[in-house]
Amino acid sequence: MGVAALVEPQVIKISSKRQITIPAKFYESGSFKEYALATWTDDGLLIQPLDVDDEDVTVDILRYLIEQGCEGEELIARYREMKRKIVPIKAKLDEAERDIAEGRVGSAREMQERLREKYGLYG
């Protein structure tokens, strides 16, 4: 997960309009840009950077939608909807490889032990 997984948790406020602000240190270490992907998991809300400028993905999405029979305005609308949900896998793999090469990651077991020690978790 890189450096971002090692940043101290931080309490953030939710506005009356249900909006949150991503703290600067998380924003920078996570390489966020204009979009983020929010996913509900068993552990809570996961927010990930989302790159919507990957042209290879664009072609794949359009091919898929055309195969599904979409055209005209429906094609455009469904494309925009799907494009927002794409997570740039290649960039994430490249980042993970850099983290490994530069020694910023350890085994899952090591991470579990650090978290147990730090937060008094047992299990």
Rank of each mutant, 00 (worst) to 15 (best):
A4Y: 00
Q10P: 05
I12A: 07
I12Y: 04
K13V: 08
K13A: 08
I22H: 07
A24F: 05
K25C: 10
F26K: 13
Y27M: 02
E28P: 03
S29Q: 07
G30V: 04
G30L: 12
F32L: 08
F32P: 05
E34N: 11
A36R: 06
A36V: 09
A38M: 07
W40Q: 00
T41D: 01
G44S: 02
L45P: 00
L45Y: 03
L46A: 02
Q48L: 05
Q48D: 03
L50E: 01
L50M: 04
V52F: 00
D56E: 12
I61M: 11
I61Y: 10
I66G: 09
G69V: 13
G69N: 10
G72T: 09
A77Y: 09
R78I: 09
R78C: 09
R78H: 09
R80P: 01
E81K: 00
K83A: 02
R84Y: 05
R84D: 01
K85F: 00
P88M: 02
I89H: 03
A91E: 03
K92P: 00
E95L: 02
D99R: 09
D99N: 08
I100Y: 10
E102D: 11
E102N: 13
E102T: 06
E102R: 11
E102L: 13
G103T: 12
G106P: 05
G106H: 06
R109N: 11
E110L: 14
M111D: 05
M111V: 14
M111Q: 13
E113F: 12
R114C: 04
R114Y: 06
R116F: 13
R116A: 08
E117V: 13
Y122I: 15
G123W: 10
G123R: 14
